[in-house]
Amino acid sequence: MLSASPEGLSDAALARELGGGVRTQTVNQLCRRLAAEGELERVGTRPILNRLPAPKPRRGRRTTGAGSRTKRSRTVAAVPSSPDTADTAAPPAAATDPLLAGASPSGTDASPATEPPTTADPVVAAPNASGTGASPASDPVPQVAPETRTRTTAEPTTSPCYDPPPYDALQAWSRVVNVQSLVAGWLVRRGATLRRASADGTGPARDLVASLDGDDVHVEVTGWPADGARTHPTTIAGDWFSAAEHAAAERRRAHPRARIVIALPDTRRYRSLTEQRAASLAGAGTEVWFVDAAGSVHAR
């Protein structure tokens, strides 16, 4: 359908075309997952349109002529003036969010600010007297002939990071795997860098570790129990909440300067348990985030 409509189709239009009682919410979740994987683009506002990404042009190799040899040169990367400047490029500054940094006086969120990555400035070094090439990169002052100096662009380096975990459309949105995916996507949209995302599908909890606004954020994620068990889901949810609170306390002891968060699906049972344990949670310096089916996150 998207191939036949290059201008794009909204979630509602796709749901109507699919028919068979497919809900717009289900199409929205699938399209967001495909967009995160680079399979399609979501553009515009009200409505957001889904369309196929434009194909990337192929790059051909340049040669100096038929039968001739490719021109070769020797390059060395410039040594940074300070060890601190040799690190990776600074991540984009996160958007101000009422949940994380307080609302602005005007009542609107601040626009996200980004900084371009720092690009190293390597130079082509002149051969030494022995003809063996340039000085090693560890030499603090490379010997460069002024008349032969040329500028090239070094590839920027980035610190390792993780993509948001995939959303499983075959399970309910309140399952732990989908709550983790929704929270991770929410953090990334606010400029956070994911540093860890556990993928243990056997237990009732998963975790996330991210860097946001210069802070380390450790998130203990818990979902809602599935129906059909011998024990009522509300009883199981109470046990899972207690386990998440204990895990958060352990994280606080291991990371005293980090932000410790428990993320839960927004249900009446979990909100009631949070109110009952409010004093204990505050004493342990633990935040509680509630996640809804649309991927929005709300503080307690």
Score class of each variant (00 low, 15 high):
residue 71 K to N: 02
residue 36 A to E: 12
residue 120 A to K: 12
residue 165 P to D: 01
residue 4 A to E: 15
residue 286 T to F: 08
residue 159 S to G: 01
residue 2 L to R: 00
residue 9 L to V: 04
residue 158 T to M: 02
residue 248 A to V: 05
residue 59 R to T: 10
residue 206 R to S: 03
residue 54 A to H: 06
residue 280 S to K: 08
residue 128 N to C: 05
residue 298 H to G: 02
residue 229 A to M: 03
residue 83 P to S: 12
residue 98 P to T: 15
residue 289 W to K: 02
residue 139 D to M: 06
residue 273 L to H: 07
residue 144 V to H: 00
residue 188 V to D: 08
residue 57 P to T: 05
residue 124 V to D: 04
residue 104 S to V: 11
residue 172 A to Y: 00
residue 62 R to K: 14
residue 4 A to P: 01
residue 2 L to Q: 06
residue 295 G to I: 10
residue 254 A to L: 09
residue 227 D to G: 02
residue 201 G to E: 08
residue 59 R to F: 12
residue 268 R to E: 02
residue 86 A to T: 12
residue 189 R to L: 10
residue 104 S to M: 08
residue 57 P to W: 08
residue 1 M to T: 14
residue 43 V to I: 01
residue 186 W to V: 07
residue 250 E to Q: 15
residue 278 A to Q: 11
residue 63 T to W: 11
residue 180 Q to C: 02
residue 278 A to R: 15
residue 43 V to S: 01
residue 120 A to L: 06
residue 165 P to T: 12
residue 260 I to S: 05
residue 99 L to V: 15
residue 266 D to I: 08
residue 44 G to I: 02
residue 232 H to R: 08
residue 68 S to K: 13
residue 139 D to H: 03
residue 9 L to N: 12
residue 30 L to I: 09
residue 172 A to S: 14
residue 274 T to W: 10
residue 162 Y to F: 11
residue 70 T to C: 03
residue 298 H to R: 15
residue 134 A to I: 01
residue 234 T to Y: 01
residue 198 S to L: 07
residue 32 R to Q: 07
residue 193 T to I: 03
residue 211 S to N: 13
residue 170 L to K: 12
residue 268 R to W: 02
residue 299 A to E: 11
residue 217 V to W: 12
residue 213 D to L: 08
residue 235 T to M: 06
residue 137 A to V: 11
residue 88 T to C: 12
residue 92 P to E: 08
residue 154 A to Y: 04
residue 106 S to C: 10
residue 160 P to C: 02
residue 202 T to A: 14
residue 169 A to G: 13
residue 103 A to M: 09
residue 58 R to L: 14
residue 3 S to D: 05
residue 126 A to Y: 07
residue 210 A to C: 12
residue 18 L to W: 13
residue 21 G to Y: 02
residue 257 R to Q: 15
residue 140 P to E: 04
residue 283 G to L: 13
residue 161 C to D: 13
residue 11 D to N: 14
residue 66 A to S: 07
residue 30 L to W: 06
residue 87 D to C: 05
residue 149 R to E: 03
residue 5 S to T: 11
residue 110 A to E: 11
residue 176 V to K: 01
